[in-house]
Amino acid sequence: MRAFVPNAVTILALCFGLTGARFAIIGNWEKAVAAIIIAGVLDGLDGRIARLLKGASRFGAELDSLSDVIAFGVAPAIIIYQWALHGLGGVGWVVALAHAVCCALRLARFNAQLDMENQPHKQAGFLTGVPSPVGAGLTLSPIFLDKWLETDFFGEPVVAGLIVATTAFLMVSNLPTFSWKSVKLRRSMRLPVLLLVGLFAASLYSAPWGTLSLLSIGYALTILFSVRSYGRLLRQRQAEAAARASAADATTTMPTAPKPDAATGADDAV
């Protein structure tokens, strides 16, 4: 049962993702987006439930990746194609496929690196590229922005296609991005953060399109800060390594005082 519960949550995430695609086919965009959001929430819970119940397994990890490909790769591609990219004809379908393929490639790279110890980004507390649930949100951001601003600009196939193509690139890129696991809250900050969570939930309910739009824009901006932060951390580590190497060389090449000759020592004693 310890392994069954988190795997069941993963299956639910997969089902909600495909349900989002179904709603897109019939043109119900609100429910399509809601289904993807629920799938993202469930995806964030299954791993934590597995660790809490001590039911983590390699089977669960593989199932989670397969679920993510469908819920955050295939389903968003179908949704955004039905919403805007179909206006580009075959090119629009290629762009939609690019999102699904890049999501699959990202997850395959993640699985291949599970047993690797040398992962600079992970060791520094960063992720490599944009996570697939966030990638799904960025791909669907033209819908958020269009509904929020009540304009047809982001519904233009070319504009939506550029956003989707950029998101696909970010998922498979080597850019360092912030990881929630590296965030540490001080005890004094817990209550303010809980307040922010409550306000976010209220705004998501009362103004969902504006909240999702600002969230997508905010995350896109954090990529710039994460690249800068990782570069600064990398330079700091390189400087520390150079200082340690210099200190080691100085210790190795330091001249030692010559030992006195036995006879000289005896004369000095006399």
Rank of each mutant, 00 (worst) to 15 (best):
W83T: 00
T151K: 00
S213H: 09
P176R: 04
Y230V: 04
L204Y: 06
T128E: 11
K54H: 12
G135W: 02
S182K: 13
L185A: 12
L42P: 07
V158I: 13
V159N: 02
I26W: 15
L194H: 01
L234A: 15
Y81Q: 03
W83H: 01
S179E: 01
A168K: 00
P142A: 03
A262W: 10
P6N: 07
A269I: 11
H99Y: 06
F153D: 06
E240M: 10
V94S: 08
P260T: 04
K147Y: 10
F4G: 10
D261G: 14
A262M: 11
L234G: 12
G265P: 09
S246H: 13
T256W: 10
G89Q: 11
S213F: 05
L88I: 09
R237F: 07
R190P: 02
V95C: 04
P131M: 08
S188R: 14
K181V: 02
L195M: 12
A269Q: 09
L221S: 12
F4I: 15
P133L: 07
A32P: 02
D261K: 12
L196D: 00
G125K: 04
G129F: 06
S141W: 03
I70A: 15
A245T: 14
L52H: 13
I79M: 00
S65K: 08
L18S: 11
A39W: 01
A262G: 04
F72C: 07
D46C: 04
L162F: 10
A168P: 01
K147Q: 14
H121Q: 12
G129W: 05
T139E: 05
S246F: 09
G137V: 00
P260E: 03
D267G: 06
N28H: 10
Q113M: 14
Q238S: 11
A8T: 14
D249V: 12
L191N: 06
G20E: 10
G137Q: 01
G198S: 08
W83Y: 08
A50C: 02
S57L: 03
I70E: 08
L14R: 01
A124N: 06
G40K: 03
T253W: 15
H86G: 08
L199M: 03
M254W: 13
W29K: 07
F200W: 13
G40W: 06
I25E: 15
L97F: 11
G90V: 15
P6S: 03
